[in-house]
Simulated scan of single mutants.
Amino acid sequence: MKYQSRKQAMILLADGTIFYGKAVANKEGSAFGEVCFNTGMTGYQEIFTDPSYYGQLMVTTNAHIGNYGVKNDEEESDSVKIAGLICKNFSYVPSRVGKSDSLENFLNENNILAISDVDTRALVSYIRDHGAMNAVISTEVDKIDELKKQLNETPDMVGLELASKVSTKEAYFYGDENATYKIAALDLGIKKNILRNLAKRDCYIKVFPYNATFKEMEAFNPDGYFLSNGPGDPEPLECAITLAKEIIEKDLPLFGICLGHQIIALSEGVSTFKMYNGHRGINHPVINHLTGKGEITSQNHGFAINRKETESNANFEITHSHLNDNEVMGIRHTKKNCFSVQYHPEAGPGPNDATYLFDQFIENIKQQKLETV
């Protein structure tokens, strides 16, 4: 096995609890962030490159990570976004049909610290019982007091604005410029597979920075507006909240996913809150109240919208709920052309039960065009 004598490493949680492991590839250093876990059995490359995971230490619950390597067409952004990786068994040699590289090289190229040989079952059980919290992974196992001090100075996720860290700096285009529909998308941490799904439905997309104004987006003369997923607390994103409010007031077709869903809720007076652990995995069961059908969904969020406030808000109808904890998974505006979901219909990784939501968005645009003719 490669790296027989690997450096000792540890996970130090904010409450002082320590779990030990080994450094992957003898890479040294420390990485800080909020520790969370994902229950997906596959799709680790998509998870690691998902901008919504920016600033988080990822615990993978699958026992083997890296066994099928990485491929360029399976990235959800242009770089790894997690702060660090914690796993049980790390596979240095990939086994896969077709051209692929090792996960070790991929993480090294992105300067990501990873530790393995961790009792991830015990760690995940601890996080489930005590909630998501800040942590540090480190090879500096003899500097616990110093690391504790740095950890205490690490900002909590509540109140933390992170969309600006992952959003595009300049607007750009995606898709065929001769497509039937034009979509103005606000990049709060947008995944590539969202853009692929829109382009597949004959859309030409202009992607705008997180702080774009309605005037800037309107100048593109779009047929519909989209608010993307992304990391951090939604409440500090005042520009995005104002933008959503303006789009809704003008009754323009609007679709939001994940963080975009939360922004839409905030724009209509529904508050958000930090979840105890969040939902992160590719097998979350959701009930569609409009059809009565169940959906298996891909999810990645640590914040959610307030259910009681949503139920009492005359502007919203709850369209989807989580079957495990009854959290609000989808809403639609009762008076305007607007809807959103908390989960990821584009998957990447995950099932495709909910891709119909992109079709619903296009149908809303078509209906709007008919009414304005």
Rank of each mutant, 00 (worst) to 15 (best):
G302T: 11
E295C: 04
F106M: 07
H344A: 06
S167N: 02
P285F: 15
S312C: 03
A354L: 04
V166S: 02
G40V: 07
K293E: 15
G21T: 03
N277V: 09
F32D: 04
G189M: 03
N72W: 02
K71S: 14
N89M: 05
P51T: 08
N152D: 14
E146L: 07
P231F: 05
G33A: 07
H64A: 06
V136D: 00
L151T: 00
D223I: 06
R196T: 13
H289T: 14
D142H: 12
I331H: 03
V166C: 03
R307D: 05
K22L: 06
A314Y: 07
A185K: 01
N105P: 00
L198W: 07
Y174H: 13
M58Q: 07
A304H: 06
S138C: 08
C203N: 02
S164H: 15
E309T: 04
K200R: 13
I247T: 02
G43T: 12
G224Q: 08
E295A: 09
E104L: 14
I331N: 03
F220C: 10
I115V: 10
V124R: 12
P351Q: 11
K143W: 00
E104W: 04
L237M: 13
L198V: 06
N178H: 13
Q262C: 10
S100E: 09
T180G: 04
S321F: 08
F106R: 09
K99Q: 11
A23S: 15
V118Y: 03
F358W: 07
N67S: 14
L162Y: 01
Q150C: 05
E268M: 12
T319W: 05
F106S: 01
E216C: 11
F273H: 15
G294I: 07
G40W: 00
M133Y: 00
V270W: 02
F303Y: 14
